[in-house]
Amino acid sequence: MKQNYVILTVFILGICLSLMFTFHFFLRTLDIEAPTAAGENLPEADYHFVLIVQEAESKYLLELFEGAQDAARERGATIEYWGTKQTNIEDHIKLIEMAIAAKVDGILTQGLSNEFEAVINKALVKQIPVIMVDSDLDDNDDLPYVGTDNYHAGYELGSAVLTETEGETKIGIVTGSILANNLNKRIQGFLEAISEDDRMEVVSIESSNLSKIQGAEKTYQMLKNHPDISIFFGTSALDSLGISEGIKKMNAARQIRVYAFDDLEETVALLKAGEIHAIMKQEPYEMGYTGVHSLIALIQGNDIMKDFYTPAAIIKKEDVEK
């Protein structure tokens, strides 16, 4: 009889155990997330915008998109982030064309080149508002612009160089792209500022093609040709990195000061290390945020300012160490 009970217990345990397993695995089979069926949970947004940028993976532009996204979320709109991998005017235009074909409610784009004018006009004809962010078109008289006053920022940096140097000073400039309007304006402002004193001389302006390696190469060559350069000015985010690498390669004994644009993590680290002297810090988040709000204002028929300048300020080692 005792053995009987042992066998019964074993059987009942076995049945319970296997039932538990069955149940457990069965629950696991139910626990599968099917993709939402078509037509379900469709996000209803009032407006559908597109932000078109020149370099989709750039941190700076991603921050800009973040600002735009936050603004869109506040206003119940959706915003897409489109961009070429590297600056490519032709593809950029194609993206704007696509946005027009997709009948979006508004376009935010960098005004990289005046070749954009035709396609922007096409958008305006189709009653799609376009706002320039970060960089403006040349001689832009009627399209709204949200971003740093690039001329002014360049001018500020130039003034800083002027006050922080004494005597004959040779200057080298590395710019991301010779074609980019925003960079050119920075150079214009910079040149304007230093032209006030004739002890300043810009010995060379070279393009890095928005590449750190090319920036380093150009710096190296510049220093080779003009060993007496004591000031470098990098107009776009990656230029300052290239410059400081080029200087390191040259192993110059002299103190060379680097004036940079944009506070990338690496740039700030170099600033802390003393390899970069000053950074012109822009506010891309501000640009995106204000850009979206301006688009909505335009659609709703409100008047907006032609130019909305977001703040930009010089930061130095002391500022980041605080």
């Binding site: 037509g39 559908h48 074909a101």
Partner: peptide, 20 residues
């Protein structure tokens, strides 16, 4: 049958392109 939560915007663009 196709448009859903995840591809809403891109499908919408696609449909608009066809409209265009």
């Amino acid at each position: 049958k196709f448009q859903n939560e995840h591809n809403y915007t891109s499908t919408k663009n696609y449909l608009s392109m066809i409209d265009s």
